[in-house]
Nucleic acid binder design. Structure first.
Lengths: 120, 120
DNA sequence: GAAATTAGTTTCCTGCAGGAAATCAGGTTG
DNA sequence: CAACCTGATTTCCTGCAGGAAACTAATTTC
């Protein structure tokens, strides 16, 4: 009976795992992280610019994802009194704190690409 | 015609957005980030311990997600010559570099919780 | 030899995420 | 008034992600 026991689930670690799950629930959906990345890079952006810029996204999806982000206070929606009405989206102060997450993801993507390159 | 033009998609920003997408493809699936978080916290872990510890996951899912992570060289699988055979999983050196991402996600989750608390 | 444990695999089923296209509604242009 | 732009919303459809449960197979314990 000397099967190596791995560590039991410590309660303090649980919290971190819960925090991870909570975050991922907010960021769930195929497009949310890309949308936030876009907003971090460009600041205040019009709906149509995102629709054209984010490759492959459909209007319904963009609209829906933005609504969810707005509900979670990650994004603010502003209707502009322009000729054809335009709507601009930007990150809230709280939304901007997601830059740490997005940066980490983006940076790791570059790291990973280098890793694959070294191998081949 | 003084509609405020938002920034045009600059090619150098594109790269970052692609890196984000690449990372998220690797981490896609309901359980991968939680699994990696678990491995970061506990190091080398047996299959059954994860199955019991990660709340709600089914054997099929755990097996499948681990296989995908192994294919992407995030995780190593080791069969141990124990009495009932056991299999241990751990992060590769490359997999461990994901800690920057997981930490950011975990930390933000805590930040977000505080943010919600302040509001209420 | 029955029961249990480990690590899966297989099958079957379902919901919903997400895509395509049409529609709407307000405003401007020609 | 027809055409076009904006920012959606609605409908319809499909695939596949993911869950539950049963089964395999090797080894050990009782």
């Amino acid at each position: 009976m000397n099967v190596k026991k791995t560590a039991p689930p410590a309660p303090d670690c649980r919290e971190q795992l819960i925090a991870i799950r909570d975050t991922m629930v907010l960021l769930s959906g195929k497009w949310k992280i890309q949308i936030i990345g876009w907003l971090l890079l460009y600041g205040r952006v019009r709906f149509m610019d995102m629709l054209r810029g984010i490759e492959g996204i459909a209007a319904k999806m963009l609209s829906k994802e933005l609504q969810e982000l707005e509900q979670n206070q990650i994004v603010v929606r502003t209707v502009m009194p322009t000729k054809p009405i335009t709507v601009e989206y930007e990150l809230t102060e709280h939304g901007k704190t997601l830059s740490s997450v997005i940066d980490a993801i983006s940076t790791w993507g570059v790291t990973h690409r280098k890793f694959l390159f070294k191998k081949s």
